[in-house]
Amino acid sequence: MSIPERVAVRLRVNGEEAALMVPPYKTLLEVLREDMGLTGTKHGCELGECSTCGVLVDGKPYLSCLSMPLDLEGREILTVEGMSADGRSHPLQIAFAELGAAQCGYCTPAMLLTAKALLDTDPHPSRDAIMEALAGVLCRCTGYLKIFEAVELAASRDGITAR
C-alpha cells in the first residue's frame, strides 16, 4: 500500500468546521499553521518538550506538535485566535496585557490557553494550582511570576466565559 499524498480531514477549530486535504503525516501544529493560516499557535521544539504549541482539545491542553489531525475529527479544537469572542478579548488576554505577562509573546498563546483550561474547571485557583497547571509551558522571558499574577487577576474578575 502506498502512502497517500493527501487525505480528507474535517476539523472543528474555534467553533468552525473546516474540510481539508492534508498529508496524513502532518501534525495538528503543521495543519493549523500551514494549511489553515492560524499562526497564533507557535512551536519551540516540535517534540513535546516545551508546550509552546499548546492548544485546547475539548477544553484540555494538548500539544499540537504531537497530535494527529485524523484522531481529532469531531473534537473541539481551540487556538488563541478563538479565545476572543464577539470582538472582545478574553479576560485572561486582558489580564496578560495589563500586567505585562507577555514579554516576547511567543509562549503566550499556549500559556493563555493552558490557563483557560484551568479556570474553566477551577475558576478561583490557588497559586499552587496555577503553578501546577502551567508547569508544562516553558517561558524564558518573564520568570513566570507575572503570568501567575495575570491568571489570578483574570480569576478575580467576573465574566470568564467558557467558549
Partner: peptide, 13 residues
C-alpha cells in the same frame, strides 16, 4: 501587548 495576547504578532516563521 494586545497583538501578542491575541496571537496576531507575526514572528518570522
Amino acid at each position: 501587548a494586545f497583538s501578542k495576547v491575541s496571537g496576531q504578532t507575526k514572528f518570522a516563521d
